[in-house]
Write a protein that binds this DNA or RNA. Structure first.
Length: 564
RNA sequence: CGGGGCGUAGCGCAGUCUGGCAGCGCACCUGCCUUGGGAGCAGGGGGUCGGCGGUUCAAAUCCGCCCGCCCCGACCA
Protein backbone atom coordinates (compact mmCIF):
# COMPACT_ATOMS: atom_id res chain seq x y z
CA UNK A 1 0.00 0.00 0.00
CA UNK A 2 1.00 3.55 -0.65
CA UNK A 3 0.53 5.71 2.38
CA UNK A 4 -0.69 8.57 0.19
CA UNK A 5 -3.68 6.39 -0.65
CA UNK A 6 -4.09 4.83 2.77
CA UNK A 7 -6.23 5.75 5.76
CA UNK A 8 -3.87 6.31 8.65
CA UNK A 9 -4.99 9.20 10.85
CA UNK A 10 -2.13 9.51 13.32
CA UNK A 11 -2.27 11.93 16.22
CA UNK A 12 0.61 14.15 17.15
CA UNK A 13 -0.56 14.57 20.71
CA UNK A 14 -1.86 12.20 23.34
CA UNK A 15 -5.64 12.11 23.41
CA UNK A 16 -6.89 13.24 26.81
CA UNK A 17 -9.19 10.24 27.17
CA UNK A 18 -6.44 7.63 27.13
CA UNK A 19 -4.33 6.70 30.11
CA UNK A 20 -2.97 3.23 29.41
CA UNK A 21 0.03 3.09 27.09
CA UNK A 22 -1.56 0.69 24.63
CA UNK A 23 -4.76 2.71 24.50
CA UNK A 24 -2.84 5.92 23.86
CA UNK A 25 -0.65 4.39 21.21
CA UNK A 26 -3.49 2.62 19.44
CA UNK A 27 -5.36 5.91 19.15
CA UNK A 28 -2.28 7.87 18.13
CA UNK A 29 -1.20 5.26 15.61
CA UNK A 30 -4.59 5.38 13.94
CA UNK A 31 -5.48 1.78 14.78
CA UNK A 32 -8.76 2.39 16.58
CA UNK A 33 -11.34 5.09 17.22
CA UNK A 34 -13.97 5.16 19.90
CA UNK A 35 -17.64 5.18 19.00
CA UNK A 36 -19.06 5.01 22.54
CA UNK A 37 -17.77 3.94 25.92
CA UNK A 38 -16.16 0.53 25.46
CA UNK A 39 -17.13 0.35 21.79
CA UNK A 40 -14.45 0.81 19.15
CA UNK A 41 -13.99 0.91 15.40
CA UNK A 42 -10.89 -0.76 14.01
CA UNK A 43 -9.17 1.25 11.28
CA UNK A 44 -7.12 -0.39 8.51
CA UNK A 45 -3.82 -0.44 10.39
CA UNK A 46 -5.45 -1.81 13.55
CA UNK A 47 -7.53 -4.32 11.67
CA UNK A 48 -4.48 -5.75 9.92
CA UNK A 49 -2.91 -6.38 13.31
CA UNK A 50 -6.10 -7.88 14.65
CA UNK A 51 -6.26 -10.18 11.64
CA UNK A 52 -2.68 -11.33 12.14
CA UNK A 53 -3.51 -12.46 15.68
CA UNK A 54 -6.79 -13.95 14.53
CA UNK A 55 -5.04 -15.98 11.85
CA UNK A 56 -2.46 -17.35 14.25
CA UNK A 57 -5.29 -18.38 16.54
CA UNK A 58 -7.20 -19.95 13.67
CA UNK A 59 -4.19 -21.90 12.45
CA UNK A 60 -3.43 -23.28 15.87
CA UNK A 61 -7.03 -24.17 16.59
CA UNK A 62 -7.23 -26.00 13.29
CA UNK A 63 -3.94 -27.73 14.00
CA UNK A 64 -5.32 -28.89 17.35
CA UNK A 65 -8.28 -30.43 15.58
CA UNK A 66 -10.88 -27.84 16.48
CA UNK A 67 -13.51 -26.93 13.87
CA UNK A 68 -14.57 -23.40 13.12
CA UNK A 69 -18.20 -22.33 13.33
CA UNK A 70 -19.95 -18.98 13.59
CA UNK A 71 -22.60 -18.60 16.26
CA UNK A 72 -25.22 -15.87 16.62
CA UNK A 73 -24.54 -12.77 18.66
CA UNK A 74 -28.25 -12.37 19.39
CA UNK A 75 -29.58 -15.16 21.55
CA UNK A 76 -33.06 -16.06 22.83
CA UNK A 77 -33.72 -15.85 26.56
CA UNK A 78 -35.10 -19.39 26.67
CA UNK A 79 -31.64 -20.92 26.39
CA UNK A 80 -30.31 -18.78 29.18
CA UNK A 81 -33.25 -19.66 31.36
CA UNK A 82 -32.38 -23.33 30.95
CA UNK A 83 -29.04 -22.82 32.67
CA UNK A 84 -30.40 -20.27 35.09
CA UNK A 85 -28.02 -17.64 33.83
CA UNK A 86 -30.81 -15.39 32.51
CA UNK A 87 -31.43 -14.47 36.12
CA UNK A 88 -28.01 -14.65 37.68
CA UNK A 89 -25.54 -13.55 35.04
CA UNK A 90 -25.79 -9.97 36.20
CA UNK A 91 -26.07 -6.74 34.32
CA UNK A 92 -23.16 -7.57 32.02
CA UNK A 93 -25.75 -9.55 30.06
CA UNK A 94 -27.45 -6.99 27.85
CA UNK A 95 -31.10 -8.02 27.64
CA UNK A 96 -33.70 -6.62 25.29
CA UNK A 97 -36.95 -7.44 23.53
CA UNK A 98 -37.66 -7.84 19.86
CA UNK A 99 -40.73 -6.36 18.14
CA UNK A 100 -42.81 -9.32 19.27
CA UNK A 101 -41.83 -8.64 22.87
CA UNK A 102 -39.71 -11.77 23.09
CA UNK A 103 -36.68 -11.61 25.39
CA UNK A 104 -33.24 -11.73 23.81
CA UNK A 105 -29.70 -10.92 24.84
CA UNK A 106 -26.39 -10.12 23.21
CA UNK A 107 -24.06 -13.07 23.74
CA UNK A 108 -21.37 -12.39 26.34
CA UNK A 109 -20.26 -16.01 25.86
CA UNK A 110 -21.72 -18.96 24.00
CA UNK A 111 -22.01 -22.01 26.26
CA UNK A 112 -25.78 -22.08 25.91
CA UNK A 113 -25.82 -21.73 22.14
CA UNK A 114 -23.12 -24.28 21.50
CA UNK A 115 -24.61 -26.76 23.95
CA UNK A 116 -27.96 -26.37 22.28
CA UNK A 117 -26.41 -26.98 18.87
CA UNK A 118 -24.50 -30.03 19.99
CA UNK A 119 -27.34 -31.63 21.92
CA UNK A 120 -29.48 -31.54 18.80
CA UNK A 121 -26.86 -33.15 16.58
CA UNK A 122 -24.65 -35.38 18.69
CA UNK A 123 -26.14 -38.69 19.81
CA UNK A 124 -23.32 -41.18 20.06
CA UNK A 125 -19.94 -41.59 21.67
CA UNK A 126 -18.78 -42.19 18.09
CA UNK A 127 -19.26 -38.47 17.38
CA UNK A 128 -16.84 -37.60 20.16
CA UNK A 129 -14.56 -35.93 20.90
CA UNK A 130 -15.67 -32.71 19.27
CA UNK A 131 -14.10 -29.29 19.61
CA UNK A 132 -15.84 -26.33 18.00
CA UNK A 133 -14.62 -22.76 17.98
CA UNK A 134 -15.48 -19.38 16.59
CA UNK A 135 -13.85 -16.00 16.30
CA UNK A 136 -16.62 -13.51 16.73
CA UNK A 137 -17.75 -10.40 18.56
CA UNK A 138 -19.03 -10.66 22.10
CA UNK A 139 -20.91 -8.09 24.08
CA UNK A 140 -20.63 -7.61 27.82
CA UNK A 141 -22.14 -4.52 29.33
CA UNK A 142 -19.14 -3.96 31.60
CA UNK A 143 -19.63 -1.76 34.63
CA UNK A 144 -16.56 0.16 33.71
CA UNK A 145 -14.98 -0.25 30.31
CA UNK A 146 -11.33 0.65 30.54
CA UNK A 147 -8.06 1.05 28.70
CA UNK A 148 -9.51 1.13 25.19
CA UNK A 149 -9.94 -2.29 23.63
CA UNK A 150 -8.29 -3.93 26.65
CA UNK A 151 -11.59 -4.06 28.48
CA UNK A 152 -14.21 -3.11 25.97
CA UNK A 153 -17.92 -3.87 26.02
CA UNK A 154 -17.95 -5.12 22.46
CA UNK A 155 -14.87 -7.17 21.70
CA UNK A 156 -13.55 -9.87 19.42
CA UNK A 157 -13.04 -13.21 21.08
CA UNK A 158 -12.06 -16.68 20.08
CA UNK A 159 -14.12 -19.13 22.08
CA UNK A 160 -13.84 -22.88 21.79
CA UNK A 161 -15.90 -25.63 23.39
CA UNK A 162 -14.93 -29.25 23.77
CA UNK A 163 -17.29 -32.18 24.11
CA UNK A 164 -16.08 -35.52 25.40
CA UNK A 165 -17.50 -38.78 26.60
CA UNK A 166 -15.73 -38.75 29.92
CA UNK A 167 -13.29 -37.03 32.24
CA UNK A 168 -10.27 -38.56 30.54
CA UNK A 169 -11.42 -37.26 27.20
CA UNK A 170 -11.90 -33.82 28.70
CA UNK A 171 -8.37 -33.97 30.07
CA UNK A 172 -7.05 -34.75 26.60
CA UNK A 173 -9.02 -31.92 25.00
CA UNK A 174 -7.94 -29.54 27.73
CA UNK A 175 -4.34 -30.55 27.23
CA UNK A 176 -4.63 -30.02 23.46
CA UNK A 177 -6.03 -26.54 24.00
CA UNK A 178 -3.37 -25.76 26.59
CA UNK A 179 -0.70 -26.70 24.06
CA UNK A 180 -2.40 -24.69 21.33
CA UNK A 181 -2.48 -21.65 23.61
CA UNK A 182 1.22 -22.00 24.34
CA UNK A 183 1.90 -22.01 20.62
CA UNK A 184 -0.44 -19.10 19.91
CA UNK A 185 1.04 -16.70 22.40
CA UNK A 186 4.58 -17.76 21.56
CA UNK A 187 3.91 -17.11 17.90
CA UNK A 188 2.49 -13.71 18.77
CA UNK A 189 5.90 -12.87 20.17
CA UNK A 190 4.64 -12.35 23.71
CA UNK A 191 6.24 -13.00 27.07
CA UNK A 192 3.52 -14.84 28.97
CA UNK A 193 2.78 -17.44 31.61
CA UNK A 194 0.01 -19.95 32.09
CA UNK A 195 -1.20 -19.76 35.67
CA UNK A 196 -3.68 -21.67 37.81
CA UNK A 197 -6.88 -19.70 38.00
CA UNK A 198 -10.16 -19.40 39.78
CA UNK A 199 -13.11 -20.66 37.77
CA UNK A 200 -15.40 -17.81 38.81
CA UNK A 201 -18.83 -17.43 37.30
CA UNK A 202 -18.26 -19.85 34.41
CA UNK A 203 -17.79 -22.72 36.85
CA UNK A 204 -15.91 -25.97 36.50
CA UNK A 205 -13.14 -27.89 38.16
CA UNK A 206 -9.84 -26.76 36.72
CA UNK A 207 -8.73 -23.64 34.99
CA UNK A 208 -5.69 -21.86 33.65
CA UNK A 209 -5.27 -18.26 32.63
CA UNK A 210 -2.74 -17.15 30.04
CA UNK A 211 -1.16 -13.98 31.23
CA UNK A 212 0.93 -11.55 29.23
CA UNK A 213 3.52 -10.22 31.63
CA UNK A 214 3.25 -6.45 31.91
CA UNK A 215 3.58 -4.00 34.78
CA UNK A 216 0.28 -2.43 33.84
CA UNK A 217 -1.59 -5.73 34.11
CA UNK A 218 -4.72 -5.85 36.22
CA UNK A 219 -3.97 -9.27 37.67
CA UNK A 220 -1.24 -10.26 40.07
CA UNK A 221 0.54 -13.56 39.65
CA UNK A 222 2.48 -15.67 42.13
CA UNK A 223 5.41 -17.33 40.39
CA UNK A 224 8.03 -19.71 41.71
CA UNK A 225 11.30 -19.69 39.81
CA UNK A 226 12.45 -22.82 41.57
CA UNK A 227 9.70 -25.30 40.75
CA UNK A 228 7.62 -23.53 38.10
CA UNK A 229 4.52 -23.08 40.23
CA UNK A 230 2.42 -20.29 38.77
CA UNK A 231 -0.96 -19.13 39.99
CA UNK A 232 -3.18 -16.13 39.97
CA UNK A 233 -2.66 -14.51 43.34
CA UNK A 234 -6.43 -14.88 43.85
CA UNK A 235 -6.05 -18.54 44.58
CA UNK A 236 -2.38 -18.98 45.47
CA UNK A 237 -2.32 -20.79 48.76
CA UNK A 238 -0.49 -19.08 51.60
CA UNK A 239 1.97 -21.43 53.29
CA UNK A 240 3.48 -18.75 55.41
CA UNK A 241 3.76 -19.74 59.06
CA UNK A 242 2.84 -17.05 61.51
CA UNK A 243 4.42 -17.41 64.89
CA UNK A 244 4.45 -14.87 67.62
CA UNK A 245 6.59 -14.61 70.74
CA UNK A 246 4.94 -15.60 74.01
CA UNK A 247 3.21 -12.64 75.53
CA UNK A 248 1.23 -12.27 78.69
CA UNK A 249 -2.39 -11.21 78.21
CA UNK A 250 -2.80 -7.65 79.33
CA UNK A 251 -6.01 -6.04 80.50
CA UNK A 252 -8.46 -5.01 77.79
CA UNK A 253 -8.68 -1.27 77.42
CA UNK A 254 -10.82 1.10 75.40
CA UNK A 255 -9.11 4.16 73.93
CA UNK A 256 -10.61 7.20 72.23
CA UNK A 257 -9.62 7.45 68.60
CA UNK A 258 -11.64 10.39 67.27
CA UNK A 259 -11.89 10.24 63.49
CA UNK A 260 -9.08 7.72 63.29
CA UNK A 261 -10.21 4.87 61.06
CA UNK A 262 -7.77 3.35 58.61
CA UNK A 263 -5.14 0.88 59.72
CA UNK A 264 -2.37 3.36 59.00
CA UNK A 265 -4.09 6.09 60.96
CA UNK A 266 -4.85 3.90 63.95
CA UNK A 267 -1.35 2.44 64.05
CA UNK A 268 0.21 5.88 63.86
CA UNK A 269 -2.19 7.29 66.43
CA UNK A 270 -1.50 4.54 68.96
CA UNK A 271 2.18 4.25 68.16
CA UNK A 272 2.06 0.54 67.30
CA UNK A 273 2.98 -1.25 64.06
CA UNK A 274 0.08 -2.15 61.68
CA UNK A 275 0.89 -5.82 62.31
CA UNK A 276 -0.40 -5.34 65.86
CA UNK A 277 -3.81 -4.42 64.51
CA UNK A 278 -6.54 -6.81 63.47
CA UNK A 279 -8.90 -5.59 60.74
CA UNK A 280 -12.52 -6.68 60.99
CA UNK A 281 -14.00 -6.78 57.51
CA UNK A 282 -17.70 -7.31 56.99
CA UNK A 283 -19.02 -9.07 53.92
CA UNK A 284 -22.37 -9.96 52.54
CA UNK A 285 -22.25 -13.55 51.42
CA UNK A 286 -25.44 -15.07 50.13
CA UNK A 287 -28.05 -13.99 52.63
CA UNK A 288 -25.78 -13.59 55.62
CA UNK A 289 -23.20 -11.17 56.90
CA UNK A 290 -19.83 -12.55 57.95
CA UNK A 291 -16.99 -10.86 59.77
CA UNK A 292 -13.47 -11.68 58.70
CA UNK A 293 -10.45 -10.94 60.86
CA UNK A 294 -7.04 -10.42 59.34
CA UNK A 295 -3.84 -8.81 60.55
CA UNK A 296 -3.73 -5.10 59.81
CA UNK A 297 -0.79 -5.21 57.44
CA UNK A 298 -2.16 -8.03 55.29
CA UNK A 299 -4.62 -8.17 52.44
CA UNK A 300 -7.76 -10.29 52.44
CA UNK A 301 -8.39 -12.56 49.45
CA UNK A 302 -12.05 -12.34 48.53
CA UNK A 303 -11.86 -15.29 46.15
CA UNK A 304 -10.64 -17.54 48.94
CA UNK A 305 -13.43 -16.27 51.15
CA UNK A 306 -16.01 -16.85 48.46
CA UNK A 307 -14.77 -20.38 47.81
CA UNK A 308 -14.61 -21.15 51.53
CA UNK A 309 -18.19 -20.02 52.05
CA UNK A 310 -19.32 -21.81 48.91
CA UNK A 311 -21.29 -18.82 47.65
CA UNK A 312 -21.24 -17.39 44.14
CA UNK A 313 -20.40 -13.89 45.31
CA UNK A 314 -19.17 -11.98 48.33
CA UNK A 315 -19.21 -8.23 48.59
CA UNK A 316 -18.05 -5.74 51.16
CA UNK A 317 -20.94 -4.73 53.38
CA UNK A 318 -22.24 -1.24 52.72
CA UNK A 319 -22.11 1.47 55.38
CA UNK A 320 -25.70 0.84 56.40
CA UNK A 321 -25.14 -2.86 57.02
CA UNK A 322 -21.96 -2.11 58.97
CA UNK A 323 -23.86 0.32 61.14
CA UNK A 324 -26.66 -2.17 61.74
CA UNK A 325 -24.35 -5.07 62.59
CA UNK A 326 -21.71 -3.28 64.66
CA UNK A 327 -23.65 -0.28 65.88
CA UNK A 328 -20.79 1.92 64.69
CA UNK A 329 -19.89 3.73 61.49
CA UNK A 330 -17.42 2.18 59.06
CA UNK A 331 -13.91 2.10 60.49
CA UNK A 332 -14.62 0.96 64.02
CA UNK A 333 -15.73 -2.64 63.65
CA UNK A 334 -14.27 -5.24 65.98
CA UNK A 335 -14.92 -8.81 67.07
CA UNK A 336 -15.55 -8.08 70.76
CA UNK A 337 -19.23 -8.27 71.63
CA UNK A 338 -20.06 -8.66 67.96
CA UNK A 339 -23.16 -10.78 67.85
CA UNK A 340 -25.34 -12.26 65.19
CA UNK A 341 -22.62 -12.78 62.60
CA UNK A 342 -20.27 -15.63 61.86
CA UNK A 343 -16.66 -14.69 62.63
CA UNK A 344 -13.85 -16.12 60.53
CA UNK A 345 -10.17 -15.32 60.85
CA UNK A 346 -7.12 -15.59 58.70
CA UNK A 347 -4.31 -17.81 59.98
CA UNK A 348 -2.23 -14.70 60.56
CA UNK A 349 -4.39 -13.94 63.60
CA UNK A 350 -3.79 -17.29 65.28
CA UNK A 351 -1.40 -16.87 68.16
CA UNK A 352 -1.50 -13.08 68.01
CA UNK A 353 -1.93 -11.57 71.48
CA UNK A 354 -2.81 -8.15 72.82
CA UNK A 355 -3.87 -6.75 69.48
CA UNK A 356 -5.86 -3.67 68.54
CA UNK A 357 -9.36 -3.76 67.07
CA UNK A 358 -12.31 -1.45 66.58
CA UNK A 359 -14.64 -1.08 69.57
CA UNK A 360 -17.93 -1.22 67.65
CA UNK A 361 -18.56 2.33 68.64
CA UNK A 362 -17.71 5.58 66.92
CA UNK A 363 -14.29 7.05 67.61
CA UNK A 364 -13.04 4.21 69.82
CA UNK A 365 -10.71 1.24 69.56
CA UNK A 366 -9.82 -1.58 71.93
CA UNK A 367 -6.24 -2.44 72.83
CA UNK A 368 -4.91 -5.67 74.33
CA UNK A 369 -7.64 -7.71 72.71
CA UNK A 370 -7.27 -11.49 72.96
CA UNK A 371 -9.48 -14.11 71.40
CA UNK A 372 -10.66 -16.82 73.76
CA UNK A 373 -10.84 -14.23 76.53
CA UNK A 374 -12.55 -11.20 74.95
CA UNK A 375 -14.45 -13.00 72.24
CA UNK A 376 -14.81 -16.66 71.28
CA UNK A 377 -11.94 -18.23 69.38
CA UNK A 378 -12.84 -17.82 65.70
CA UNK A 379 -12.51 -20.41 62.91
CA UNK A 380 -9.10 -20.02 61.24
CA UNK A 381 -8.57 -20.38 57.50
CA UNK A 382 -6.13 -19.30 54.83
CA UNK A 383 -7.78 -16.10 53.67
CA UNK A 384 -4.96 -13.78 52.77
CA UNK A 385 -3.43 -12.71 49.52
CA UNK A 386 0.07 -14.13 49.19
CA UNK A 387 2.83 -11.60 48.86
CA UNK A 388 6.32 -11.43 47.44
CA UNK A 389 8.68 -13.73 49.29
CA UNK A 390 6.02 -16.03 50.77
CA UNK A 391 6.94 -19.72 50.58
CA UNK A 392 5.84 -21.49 47.39
CA UNK A 393 2.93 -23.82 48.20
CA UNK A 394 4.58 -26.56 46.21
CA UNK A 395 8.28 -26.35 47.06
CA UNK A 396 8.60 -23.80 49.83
CA UNK A 397 11.04 -21.50 48.05
CA UNK A 398 10.19 -17.79 47.94
CA UNK A 399 7.47 -16.68 45.53
CA UNK A 400 7.75 -13.72 43.22
CA UNK A 401 4.66 -11.61 42.62
CA UNK A 402 4.35 -9.94 39.24
CA UNK A 403 1.62 -8.47 37.08
CA UNK A 404 -0.10 -9.79 34.00
CA UNK A 405 -2.85 -9.17 31.48
CA UNK A 406 -5.27 -12.05 31.04
CA UNK A 407 -5.46 -12.82 27.32
CA UNK A 408 -6.70 -16.39 27.49
CA UNK A 409 -8.62 -18.55 29.91
CA UNK A 410 -9.35 -22.25 29.70
CA UNK A 411 -11.79 -24.19 31.89
CA UNK A 412 -12.80 -27.73 32.53
CA UNK A 413 -16.53 -27.31 32.76
CA UNK A 414 -17.51 -30.91 33.29
CA UNK A 415 -21.23 -31.52 32.99
CA UNK A 416 -22.53 -28.27 34.44
CA UNK A 417 -24.08 -27.06 31.18
CA UNK A 418 -24.79 -30.42 29.59
CA UNK A 419 -26.78 -31.51 32.61
CA UNK A 420 -28.69 -28.25 32.89
CA UNK A 421 -29.54 -28.41 29.19
CA UNK A 422 -29.83 -32.18 28.93
CA UNK A 423 -27.12 -32.52 26.31
CA UNK A 424 -26.49 -36.23 26.33
CA UNK A 425 -25.08 -39.04 24.20
CA UNK A 426 -25.26 -42.81 24.24
CA UNK A 427 -22.11 -44.54 25.40
CA UNK A 428 -20.74 -47.89 24.25
CA UNK A 429 -23.22 -49.68 26.49
CA UNK A 430 -26.12 -47.70 25.11
CA UNK A 431 -26.42 -45.74 28.32
CA UNK A 432 -27.38 -42.08 28.18
CA UNK A 433 -24.76 -39.79 29.68
CA UNK A 434 -24.17 -36.03 29.80
CA UNK A 435 -21.45 -34.62 27.59
CA UNK A 436 -18.31 -33.61 29.42
CA UNK A 437 -17.38 -30.10 28.39
CA UNK A 438 -14.51 -27.64 28.40
CA UNK A 439 -14.38 -24.04 27.25
CA UNK A 440 -11.47 -21.99 26.03
CA UNK A 441 -11.36 -18.24 25.38
CA UNK A 442 -8.89 -15.80 23.88
CA UNK A 443 -9.43 -12.05 23.74
CA UNK A 444 -8.17 -11.16 20.29
CA UNK A 445 -8.33 -7.39 20.63
CA UNK A 446 -6.96 -7.59 24.12
CA UNK A 447 -4.03 -9.63 22.85
CA UNK A 448 -3.21 -6.82 20.42
CA UNK A 449 -3.38 -4.29 23.26
CA UNK A 450 -1.30 -6.51 25.53
CA UNK A 451 1.33 -6.92 22.83
CA UNK A 452 1.64 -3.15 22.61
CA UNK A 453 1.65 -2.82 26.38
CA UNK A 454 4.63 -5.16 26.38
CA UNK A 455 6.38 -3.82 23.27
CA UNK A 456 6.73 -0.07 23.00
CA UNK A 457 9.10 2.78 23.76
CA UNK A 458 8.83 6.55 24.16
CA UNK A 459 8.40 6.97 20.40
CA UNK A 460 5.66 4.43 19.83
CA UNK A 461 4.76 0.84 19.16
CA UNK A 462 7.33 -1.87 18.47
CA UNK A 463 5.30 -4.67 16.94
CA UNK A 464 6.52 -8.24 17.25
CA UNK A 465 7.12 -9.25 13.67
CA UNK A 466 4.48 -11.99 13.67
CA UNK A 467 1.59 -9.65 14.38
CA UNK A 468 2.79 -6.42 12.76
CA UNK A 469 0.34 -4.83 10.31
CA UNK A 470 3.11 -4.65 7.72
CA UNK A 471 6.61 -6.04 7.78
CA UNK A 472 8.37 -3.14 6.16
CA UNK A 473 7.83 0.56 5.63
CA UNK A 474 9.65 2.50 2.92
CA UNK A 475 10.30 6.14 3.78
CA UNK A 476 11.05 8.27 0.76
CA UNK A 477 12.63 11.44 2.08
CA UNK A 478 12.07 13.83 -0.76
CA UNK A 479 10.18 14.37 -3.95
CA UNK A 480 13.05 13.85 -6.39
CA UNK A 481 12.32 11.44 -9.22
CA UNK A 482 15.48 9.53 -8.44
CA UNK A 483 14.25 8.72 -4.92
CA UNK A 484 10.69 7.96 -5.97
CA UNK A 485 11.84 5.61 -8.69
CA UNK A 486 14.14 3.53 -6.55
CA UNK A 487 11.52 3.49 -3.74
CA UNK A 488 8.90 2.24 -6.11
CA UNK A 489 11.22 -0.49 -7.36
CA UNK A 490 11.98 -1.69 -3.83
CA UNK A 491 8.27 -1.47 -3.00
CA UNK A 492 7.25 -3.73 -5.87
CA UNK A 493 10.08 -6.17 -5.33
CA UNK A 494 9.29 -6.60 -1.65
CA UNK A 495 5.56 -7.02 -2.12
CA UNK A 496 5.97 -9.49 -4.94
CA UNK A 497 8.43 -11.44 -2.77
CA UNK A 498 5.85 -11.80 -0.05
CA UNK A 499 7.17 -9.09 2.26
CA UNK A 500 4.12 -6.99 3.04
CA UNK A 501 5.32 -3.46 2.59
CA UNK A 502 3.82 -0.03 3.12
CA UNK A 503 5.34 2.88 1.22
CA UNK A 504 5.35 6.35 2.73
CA UNK A 505 5.21 8.26 -0.54
CA UNK A 506 3.44 11.24 0.98
CA UNK A 507 4.50 14.78 0.30
CA UNK A 508 5.69 15.25 3.87
CA UNK A 509 8.91 16.36 5.42
CA UNK A 510 11.34 13.73 6.68
CA UNK A 511 10.64 14.48 10.31
CA UNK A 512 6.96 13.71 9.92
CA UNK A 513 7.71 10.41 8.22
CA UNK A 514 10.23 9.34 10.84
CA UNK A 515 7.87 10.16 13.69
CA UNK A 516 4.95 8.32 12.13
CA UNK A 517 7.16 5.35 11.30
CA UNK A 518 8.35 4.97 14.87
CA UNK A 519 4.82 5.51 16.16
CA UNK A 520 3.13 2.81 14.11
CA UNK A 521 5.85 0.31 14.91
CA UNK A 522 6.38 -1.56 11.66
CA UNK A 523 9.44 -3.79 12.25
CA UNK A 524 11.63 -2.57 9.39
CA UNK A 525 12.05 0.92 7.99
CA UNK A 526 13.70 1.30 4.60
CA UNK A 527 14.97 4.84 4.35
CA UNK A 528 15.53 6.27 0.88
CA UNK A 529 16.99 9.75 1.02
CA UNK A 530 20.19 11.72 0.99
CA UNK A 531 22.30 8.65 1.65
CA UNK A 532 21.02 7.04 -1.51
CA UNK A 533 21.91 10.08 -3.56
CA UNK A 534 25.41 10.05 -2.10
CA UNK A 535 26.23 6.36 -2.01
CA UNK A 536 23.57 4.49 -3.94
CA UNK A 537 22.61 2.67 -0.76
CA UNK A 538 19.43 2.73 1.25
CA UNK A 539 19.23 2.34 4.95
CA UNK A 540 17.37 -0.48 6.69
CA UNK A 541 16.47 0.35 10.27
CA UNK A 542 15.12 -2.22 12.65
CA UNK A 543 12.44 -0.64 14.83
CA UNK A 544 13.07 -2.88 17.84
CA UNK A 545 16.81 -2.28 18.15
CA UNK A 546 17.30 0.95 16.26
CA UNK A 547 20.13 -0.71 14.34
CA UNK A 548 20.75 0.60 10.84
CA UNK A 549 22.41 -1.05 7.88
CA UNK A 550 23.30 0.48 4.53
CA UNK A 551 22.34 -1.84 1.70
CA UNK A 552 22.18 -1.74 -2.05
CA UNK A 553 18.54 -1.67 -3.15
CA UNK A 554 18.77 -5.17 -4.55
CA UNK A 555 20.02 -6.51 -1.22
CA UNK A 556 16.96 -5.37 0.71
CA UNK A 557 14.71 -8.29 -0.13
CA UNK A 558 17.28 -10.83 0.93
CA UNK A 559 17.91 -8.98 4.17
CA UNK A 560 14.24 -8.94 5.13
CA UNK A 561 13.55 -12.49 4.06
CA UNK A 562 16.74 -13.67 5.73
CA UNK A 563 15.69 -12.43 9.12
CA UNK A 564 12.27 -14.04 9.00
C1' C B 1 -22.87 1.22 41.58
C1' G B 2 -19.69 4.30 45.20
C1' G B 3 -15.59 8.02 45.11
C1' G B 4 -12.76 11.80 42.06
C1' G B 5 -12.45 14.72 37.58
C1' C B 6 -13.67 16.60 32.75
C1' G B 7 -17.03 18.43 28.61
C1' U B 8 -15.02 25.39 24.52
C1' A B 9 -12.93 24.13 16.28
C1' G B 10 -10.50 17.49 14.01
C1' C B 11 -6.61 17.03 18.41
C1' G B 12 -4.33 19.40 22.87
C1' C B 13 -5.83 23.39 25.85
C1' A B 14 -6.76 28.86 27.85
C1' G B 15 -11.01 31.76 29.02
C1' U B 16 -15.47 30.15 33.93
C1' C B 17 -13.48 32.22 40.27
C1' U B 18 -14.78 38.29 39.21
C1' G B 19 -21.03 37.87 33.36
C1' G B 20 -19.61 42.39 28.51
C1' C B 21 -16.68 40.93 20.60
C1' A B 22 -15.15 33.06 21.64
C1' G B 23 -9.30 32.62 21.85
C1' C B 24 -4.11 29.97 21.50
C1' G B 25 -0.96 25.87 19.55
C1' C B 26 -1.18 21.83 16.23
C1' A B 27 -4.02 19.90 12.20
C1' C B 28 -6.83 21.52 7.57
C1' C B 29 -7.24 24.75 2.60
C1' U B 30 -4.40 28.32 -1.08
C1' G B 31 0.32 30.36 -2.62
C1' C B 32 5.60 30.75 -2.16
C1' C B 33 9.55 28.16 -0.23
C1' U B 34 11.69 23.76 1.89
C1' U B 35 13.10 18.00 2.11
C1' G B 36 17.60 13.04 7.09
C1' G B 37 13.81 13.59 12.95
C1' G B 38 6.70 16.62 13.70
C1' A B 39 10.35 23.55 8.90
C1' G B 40 9.38 28.97 7.39
C1' C B 41 6.46 33.21 5.35
C1' A B 42 1.69 35.14 3.68
C1' G B 43 -3.44 34.47 3.25
C1' G B 44 -7.88 31.52 4.59
C1' G B 45 -11.94 28.12 6.33
C1' G B 46 -13.93 25.88 10.55
C1' G B 47 -17.77 26.77 16.99
C1' U B 48 -25.70 24.83 18.68
C1' C B 49 -18.94 26.75 24.25
C1' G B 50 -22.43 18.70 25.89
C1' G B 51 -28.21 19.44 26.22
C1' C B 52 -32.62 21.71 28.32
C1' G B 53 -34.52 25.28 31.50
C1' G B 54 -33.81 29.58 34.76
C1' U B 55 -31.50 34.46 36.54
C1' U B 56 -29.85 38.98 33.89
C1' C B 57 -29.96 44.69 29.70
C1' A B 58 -26.27 40.83 28.61
C1' A B 59 -24.43 33.85 30.10
C1' A B 60 -18.91 29.59 27.78
C1' U B 61 -18.98 32.21 32.66
C1' C B 62 -24.15 32.38 37.83
C1' C B 63 -28.35 28.62 39.41
C1' G B 64 -31.21 23.91 38.53
C1' C B 65 -32.05 19.38 35.97
C1' C B 66 -30.30 15.97 32.39
C1' C B 67 -26.61 13.61 29.08
C1' G B 68 -21.74 12.00 27.75
C1' C B 69 -16.66 10.80 28.75
C1' C B 70 -12.20 9.70 31.72
C1' C B 71 -9.66 8.02 36.32
C1' C B 72 -9.72 4.91 41.24
C1' G B 73 -12.54 0.48 43.52
C1' A B 74 -15.91 -4.46 43.10
C1' C B 75 -16.34 -7.94 37.42
C1' C B 76 -13.88 -10.47 32.99
C1' A B 77 -11.20 -12.45 27.23
Amino acid sequence: MKLSEYFLPTLREDPAEAEAVSHRLMLRAGMIRKLASGIYSWLPMGLRTLRRVENIVREEMDRAGALEVLLPLVQPAELWKETGRWDNFGKELLRFKDRKEHDFCLGPTHEEVITDLVRREVRSYRDLPLILYQIAPKFRDEIRPRFGVMRAREFLMKDAYSFDADEEGLNRSYEAMYEAYQRIFSRCGLRFRAVLADTGAIGGSESHEFMVLAETGEDRLALCEACGYAANVELAESKKEFSYPEEKERPLEKVATPGVKSVEEVAAFLGVPPSKLVKTLLFRAGGEVVAVLIRGDLELNEVKLRNLLGVPEVEMADAETVKRVTGAPVGFAGPVALSGVRILADLSVRGLRNFVTGANEADAHLVNVNYGRDFPEPEFYDLRVVSEGDPCPRCGRPLAVTRGIEVGHIFKLGTKYSEAMRATFLDREGKERPLVMGCYGIGIGRTVAAAIEQNHDHAGIIFPREIAPFEALILTLGPEAELMEISERIYHTLNSSGVETLWDDRDERPGVKFKDADLIGIPFQIIVGRRFKETGRVEVKERSTGQREDLLPEEVVKRLQGSA
